[in-house]
Simulated assay, not measured.
Amino acid sequence: MATDSNTKKVALVTGSANGIGKAIVRKLASDGYAVVINDLEFNKEKAEAFAEELKAQGHEASVLFADVSDFEQVKSMVNSLERLDVMVANAAVVAPVDFITDDHIDGWQKTFDVNLKGHLLCYKFAAIKMIAQGWGGRIIGASSIVGRKPEPGRMTYSATKWAIRGLTQQAAYELGKHNITVNCYAPGLINSELAQQYMASSPQAAELMNTVIKSQAVGRIGEPEDVAQLVSFLASEGAGFITGQTVSIDGGIVFT
């Protein structure tokens, strides 16, 4: 990925004030990127404290607030950057436990707006900027193990994560000629705020997650840093011939 060497490479990670996103930002900063932390305004204190922590460690870090489901906000966020080399569309929400036989679709629209539309907008505006820059880039999205293997009670969330895989393949097909690779990671159960929030939402959710843990070959819950290591590789020069792929990082739940 030949780049303009006059300025430092920039990586933007959405939903990165905490959890997996925060670990990804920390790893990319250690890789030498100028990192941009994105989150919603209600996470302002966390995001800004994290940026200050990184700066104190000698890294270049900034914060941009935007709702990834909002067309104009994502467009403005990306366009405000002087350059963009890596876009990590990490932001997501977890839907409540739901089944196809439920007599409601509570949470369906919000989950699709954030998880799927959010990825589309991040991919779209990152691609436009990277094409204009002329030296390529890396676009990386967040699928899930339930985007490969259904689990009980995950109907809405699973549907968004399957769709992200398709979106990633389509984007990779269109953008390869511009030296832009597009891939996504598919975590299993990761010890993050999002997973903890889901497990605490109901006894049923906790039971489902415990079943997942027992099914893993590795026999432990993943950590956000595990995912960050994978994203670091997908963003690297060494991953230049990998595109359109969804890489599982699940401790051995799905074998492909």
Rank of each mutant, 00 (worst) to 15 (best):
A29Y: 05
S30H: 13
S30Y: 13
D31C: 13
D31G: 09
D31S: 14
G32R: 07
G32F: 10
Y33H: 11
Y33P: 08
A34Y: 15
A34C: 14
V35M: 06
V36N: 01
V36T: 05
N38L: 00
N38M: 00
L40Q: 09
E41N: 15
E41L: 14
F42P: 13
E45T: 15
E45S: 14
E45M: 05
E45R: 12
K46G: 00
K46L: 02
A47G: 04
A47L: 03
A47R: 03
E48I: 10
E48P: 11
E48H: 09
E48W: 07
A49R: 03
A49Y: 01
A49P: 03
F50M: 10
F50L: 15
F50P: 04
A51V: 03
A51H: 01
E52C: 01
E53N: 03
E53R: 02
L54E: 03
L54Q: 02
L54S: 02
L54A: 02
K55G: 07
K55S: 04
A56Y: 07
Q57F: 03
Q57V: 01
Q57K: 15
G58K: 06
G58Q: 08
G58M: 05
H59A: 02
H59G: 01
E60H: 12
A61P: 05
S62V: 07
S62H: 08
S62A: 13
V63I: 09
V63Y: 01
L64D: 12
L64G: 10
L64M: 13
L64E: 12
A66E: 00
A66R: 00
A66K: 01
D67H: 01
D67P: 00
V68G: 00
S69A: 13
S69R: 01
S69P: 07
D70F: 01
E72L: 12
E72N: 15
Q73P: 04
Q73I: 00
Q73C: 00
Q73S: 04
V74F: 04
V74R: 02
S76Q: 15
S76P: 15
S76E: 14
M77T: 10
M77R: 06
V78A: 09
V78L: 08
N79K: 14
N79H: 13
S80R: 11
S80L: 09
S80P: 11
L81I: 01
L81S: 00
E82S: 15
E82R: 12
E82K: 14
E82W: 08
E82L: 07
E82D: 13
R83D: 08
R83I: 08
R83W: 06
R83K: 09
L84Y: 07
L84I: 10
L84H: 04
D85W: 06
D85P: 08
V86P: 08
M87Q: 13
M87E: 09
M87P: 08
M87S: 12
M87G: 09
V88E: 12
V88M: 13
V88I: 13
V88D: 14
V88R: 08
A89Q: 05
N90K: 06
N90P: 02
